[in-house]
Deep mutational scan, measured.
Amino acid sequence: CHSECLGNCSQPDDPTKCVACRNFYLDGRCVETCPPPYYHFQDWRCVNFSFCQDLHHKCKNSRRQGCHQYVIHNNKCIPECPSGYTMNSSNLLCTPCLGPCPKVCHLLEGEKTIDSVTSAQELRGCTVINGSLIINIRGGNNLAAELEANLGLIEEISGYLKIRRSYALVSLSFFRKLRLIRGETLEIGNYSFYALDNQNLRQLWDWSKHNLTITQGKLFFHYNPKLCLSEIHKMEEVSGTKGRQERNDIALKTNGDQASCENELLKFSYIRTSFDKILLRWEPYWPPDFRDLLGFMLFYKEAPYQNVTEFDGQDACGSNSWTVVDIDPPLRSNDPKSQNHPGWLMRGLKPWTQYAIFVKTLVTFSDERRTYGAKSDIIYVQTDATNPSVPLDPISVSNSSSQIILKWKPPSDPNGNITHYLVFWERQAEDSELFELDYCLKGLKLPSRTWSPPFESEDSQKHNQSEYEDSAGECCSCPKTDSQILKELEESSFRKTFEDYLHNVVFVPRKT
Rank of each mutant, 00 (worst) to 15 (best):
N334E: 02
Q199W: 11
L186W: 09
G373W: 07
E184S: 14
K218M: 12
I250F: 15
H210K: 13
G131Y: 02
S260N: 02
H341N: 13
G125W: 07
I135W: 11
W352R: 02
T361A: 12
W408K: 00
E302Q: 11
A149H: 08
N141H: 12
W344A: 12
K112L: 13
I188N: 02
L196R: 09
H341P: 11
L151K: 00
L123K: 00
A303C: 02
P388T: 14
W286F: 05
G343P: 01
T309H: 12
E122C: 05
I214R: 05
T127L: 07
E302R: 04
A385S: 06
I114K: 00
G217L: 01
Q339M: 08
P336H: 06
L161D: 00
F193P: 01
T309A: 10
S158Q: 08
G183F: 03
G110D: 09
T383W: 00
P342G: 04
T273A: 07
R124L: 10
D377M: 07
N255Q: 09
R291S: 13
L362T: 05
W205Q: 01
V170G: 14
G343T: 15
S321Y: 02
L180I: 15
N334Q: 13
R369Q: 06
Q258G: 03
W344I: 03
C126P: 00
L362P: 03
K277T: 09
E310Y: 05
V381T: 04
Y380V: 07
T113L: 10
S208R: 08
R370V: 10
N130T: 11
F220S: 12
K218Q: 04
F365Q: 08
Q245W: 05
N198H: 00
R138P: 12
R291A: 05
C105G: 00
D257H: 09
D328E: 15
L151S: 01
T361H: 09
L161Y: 01
K103R: 13
T241A: 13
P329Y: 03
Q203V: 05
D326L: 13
V390G: 02
Q199T: 09
S400C: 07
V363P: 10
Q199D: 15
Q339C: 11
W352M: 13
F174K: 00
M346P: 00
L147P: 01
